[in-house]
């Protein structure tokens, strides 16, 4: 957690108040009950513009995701294995960036982004497995596209359905605030372990996209956060920069990343620590609702 914020919060709540004189204390007790005051404050928080900006961003990402998926499926079906491999992690980044929205549709997320391990956990078999990761398996393990055409078609159909559904999504403050932290949690729990892309080892692309998704939310809410706590903005900016710099070490070419397999335990530990250090203050963005 951001230290400044916690101390501010400690100060702001019970602990500070003991410092107030009796007179002040008495005045406060006479004040409006807290619940009412809280409601009033809540009403005062107007995020209309921020929510609209985020929705526009997320929808633009979903547009790109559909276009790239279309292209990926085409390359795949044309058996252009190397080109498909090149596009695979790049197309997925649009999905990963807008995951708070993409995930709102319970059935589609596993169909598009499900890993075999997830499917099996649900008691289903390999035949129920669809989506990107199955094609990842085809490209990197099987080394062929033959026999996977139906899966490719299904992926495109699911991507189209998702694209249609997200247009109606109701973006709430909760979706943004919780979504930003969730994006980081995604990184902490599956990307950092290399479990997301077990065949292609392109985990760093997803990693980067998740962080960018969280950073976008921060950017949109920044001025609101600044009103409440300018130091939290500084801390978050610093922590995003730290993480970006750390990720930049693994960049390869213009828009690529090295295989996750080349990272040492020390490397992943450093990344994990940077994500956690970002996550604590990021979880404080909710102060804008006070």
């Amino acid at each position: 957690m951001n230290k400044k914020t916690i101390i501010a919060t400690l100060l702001a709540s019970g602990m500070l108040l003991a410092a107030c004189t009796d007179k002040e204390e008495a005045t406060k007790k006479d004040n409006t009950p807290q619940t009412e005051e809280k409601e009033q404050t809540k009403e005062a928080v107007d995020l209309t513009q921020e929510l609209a900006t985020y929705k526009a961003f997320a929808l633009a990402q979903m547009d790109e995701f559909l276009l790239e998926t279309e292209q990926f499926v085409t390359l795949f079906k044309e058996n252009k294995i190397e080109e498909a491999k090149h596009l695979y992690p790049r197309a997925r980044m649009y999905f990963e960036r807008s995951e708070p929205i993409a995930e709102s549709f319970g059935d589609l997320d596993p169909k598009i982004d499900g890993r075999l391990a997830d499917i099996e956990e649900e008691g289903l078999g390999e035949e129920d497995w669809t989506g990107y990761h199955k094609l990842e398996y085809a490209l990197w393990v099987d080394g062929k596209t033959e026999g996977y055409e139906a899966v490719a078609d299904q992926l495109l159909a699911d991507a189209k359905e998702l694209h249609a559904l997200v247009q109606t999504v109701d973006v709430t403050p909760d979706l943004m605030i919780t979504g930003a932290v969730d994006l980081l949690n995604e990184v902490s729990t599956s990307k950092i372990t290399g479990e997301e892309e077990i065949y292609s080892h392109t985990d760093l692309y997803d990693f980067k996209a998740n962080i960018e998704g969280a950073e976008k939310i921060f950017e949109i809410l920044k001025s609101k956060i600044h009103e409440k706590d300018p130091a939290l903005v500084t801390t978050l900016e610093e922590n995003f920069t730290t993480l970006d710099q750390l990720l930049a070490k693994y960049q390869e070419g213009e828009d690529g990343y090295v295989s996750y397999e080349t990272l040492t335990e020390e490397d992943t530990k450093a990344l994990s620590a940077a994500v956690n250090q970002l996550g604590e203050p990021l979880s404080q963005m909710g102060i804008i609702m006070e």
Partner: peptide, 12 residues
């Protein structure tokens, strides 16, 4: 500060 958290509750 008082604005930031509900003061009544904190006092209580």
């Amino acid at each position: 500060m008082l604005k930031m958290t509900g003061i009544g509750a904190a006092g209580a």
